[in-house]
Amino acid sequence: SPRFIALCPTTLSSSSSSGAVDEEEQRLRSDLRERFLRTLLLMTDKQVEFNMHEKVRVRARFGASDIDVLNFQVSGLETPLGVQKEALLRCQDVISCSFEL
């Protein structure tokens, strides 16, 4: 799939040469990915501030992300024009988001 090819160029090209390098890369990738997935889980149901393109800042309760990090599903989105009860934010529109523990 395209996602796999985008993710895995180094492993693909070196797959025959060195199994140990692959294993090390897989271990690092797993650890980094698991930490990220745990971050998203921690963000669930938190009030999150989204800092978006065009200097747009909005707040909402975080619901979930798709696994490819393309869309964030949120509730109670406080837009400049009022509250949108349920919304999807395009991750391409988002520069950063933050929350307190």
Binding site: V69, S96, S98, E100, L101
Partner: peptide, 14 residues
């Protein structure tokens, strides 16, 4: 200035 730690995710494309 805050009691609680904060977490920020900066999207890779940005």
């Amino acid at each position: 200035t805050k009691l609680r730690p904060s977490v920020r995710v900066i999207l890779g494309h940005a």
